[in-house]
């Protein structure tokens, strides 16, 4: 005959005593309060947050901040002159206007005086100095130098 007997047994009246045991344990045990974070969990979360902060901080210091980068600001302004956020274009214009003004108001007498002083201060070399230079410099360099400085021999 086919059976599906339960070969496992329990002590007499076991289930009655089991019920009593469970209920007495439950009544003596405090009910688990709902806690947002248990200490162990809290430590874990804190560790994760600190890790993210460390990575974030490292990235922040290593990646240049485009918003504060002067070159980036200039590039942006030149690409879109209408948005002259840093006022560079207006400054350039101001400087250009001032230069024009200076040229216009320059005294012609003063200019002539400066030119004369420059001519008087032109370098003149004696023979010894020339030999010395020739000795140390090759012809091409010397010729260039003399020509550039308008030296009278």
């Amino acid at each position: 005959m086919k059976t599906r007997n339960n070969p496992f047994k329990v002590p007499e009246n076991y289930f009655d005593s089991l019920e009593k045991d469970i209920l007495s344990k439950v009544n003596s045990a405090p009910k688990k309060k709902y806690i947002f974070f248990e200490p162990k969990q809290m430590l874990r979360y804190a560790a994760v947050i600190l890790l993210f902060l460390a990575i974030g901080g490292a990235l922040w210091w290593n990646i240049p901040n485009k918003a504060n980068d002067p070159q980036a600001k200039l590039d942006k302004t030149l690409m879109n002159p209408k948005s002259d956020s840093i006022g560079i274009l207006s400054k350039i214009e101001e400087i250009a206007q001032n230069e024009t003004k200076e040229k216009t108001i320059a005294n012609p007498t003063e200019v002539k005086k400066q030119e004369k002083e420059l001519k008087e201060n032109k370098l003149e070399l004696n023979e010894n100095e020339l030999e010395y230079l020739e000795y140390y410099l090759n012809d091409d360099v010397l010729t260039d130098y003399l020509t550039y400085n308008d030296v009278k021999l």
Binding site: F8, Y14, I22, K25, V26, A29, K31, K32
Partner: peptide, 17 residues
């Protein structure tokens, strides 16, 4: 039986909590 008894009690306490 001993293990089953202990575990059953623990399970019901867990359910209650």
């Amino acid at each position: 039986h001993e293990d089953a008894n202990d575990l059953t009690q623990e399970i019901f306490i867990k359910i209650f909590q």
